[in-house]
Design a protein around this nucleic acid. Structure first.
Lengths: 188, 188
DNA sequence: GACAAATGTCACAATGTTGTGACATTTTAA
DNA sequence: TTAAAATGTCACAACATTGTGACATTTGTC
């Protein structure tokens, strides 16, 4: 059986993702636990928020590193990183929101530098790949980064809506994302 | 000078988009108005939420219809609809969230059918365009729809982050979106 | 079963949020 | 200028949320 503390964190991420100000009652209910128990693990809302942020970052970071190290081919690295991002699921969408609401001190403990390491390492290669014509030269690097994170949230949203078959969705996501940044084109 | 009521709605959409449970004080402050005045226009939080939903839907609907009617070419229609979606800005991202929080009765008054009219009219043509090879046949229609809304939020997020030049962003969005659904490919 | 750890239930104070009334002040339009 | 409309300020009650203590109940382990 899972640790209660982790279950509360997971519930919190899920609930707070929909409503960052949701009462602790909702989070406790989602975790199948009384509010009193929640408070035994997290003395305050602020502390819970911080734990969520830390949990998310570690999850994300680990997944990205595994993906990045799974191959030497940059295109395959990107594909694996996209899949890893999708697998992180709803947790990912929550990440940006938290930055506005969590006391920054609570995030200091997290190895923030490492967290972005894998993805950023990859994105520093973008100009080189563009020179080789592998990625469209028409697209600025920050836009490519935006498309990457955007495709993850798009995919998660599509999954949540239930309109797209789940077993095909990663394939679709990579297909569309790779095309959107010009992979597979011959552009001299 | 703008109507106070509309200013409050705009402020509410902006604030609630970041935090659906944000106190009315924040909304009033954003609107440059006292909380008491806010309550003179909206007797309850619920009523304000409903007004936001209605306002958004009408804005979105009008923009889509204008875009749709601006040309007969389906590809150009799609391009214009994407631009219209981006122009609706932060308002759009709010729309889905509201569906979970607003009493559905308050949305009944809105011509919901019409709201989706233009976009849905377009998306019903997708199979035909796929048969002609204009859009990739590998992509299910719901996924294309997800990509459309996803590209809008991606673009808005990129704008908000400040990492991508605003004057080029619509162009980038259309470039990447059209590629992501297979427009411009020769696929037999 | 017996014991310890974890959890639940209830009560409670402190604080935050909402919605309203009364009245002062400012803005608008004639 | 003046009267009406709009807004601001303050006070207030009702309600929601948070965090904690005291004690009962359940769960896991020997």
């Amino acid at each position: 059986m899972k640790e209660t503390k982790q279950e509360i964190i997971d519930a919190a991420i899920s609930v707070l993702n929909a409503d960052i100000s949701a009462p602790l009652d909702f989070i406790a209910a989602k975790a199948g636990v009384s509010r009193r128990t929640l408070h035994r693990y997290f003395s305050s809302r602020e502390e819970l928020l911080g734990a969520c942020a830390q949990d998310m970052m570690l999850t994300w970071q680990k997944a990205m590193l595994v993906a990045y190290n799974s191959t030497r081919d940059p295109i395959e690295q990107l594909e694996q990183m996209l899949y890893a991002g999708i697998d992180c699921g709803v947790k990912y969408a929550f990440l940006n929101k938290l930055r506005d609401h969590v006391d920054q001190e609570l995030l200091q403990a997290v190895p923030d530098k490492q967290y972005e390491q894998a993805r950023d390492k990859w994105f520093r290669r973008v100009p080189g790949l563009q020179r080789k014509g592998i990625i469209s030269r028409a697209l600025p690097a920050p836009w490519i980064k935006a498309l990457f994170t955007g495709m993850i949230t798009t995919t998660i949203e599509a999954l949540r809506s239930g309109d797209v078959a789940p077993n095909k969705i990663k394939e679709l996501a990579w297909h569309s994302f790779s095309k959107s940044i010009g992979i597979g084109h011959q552009q001299g």
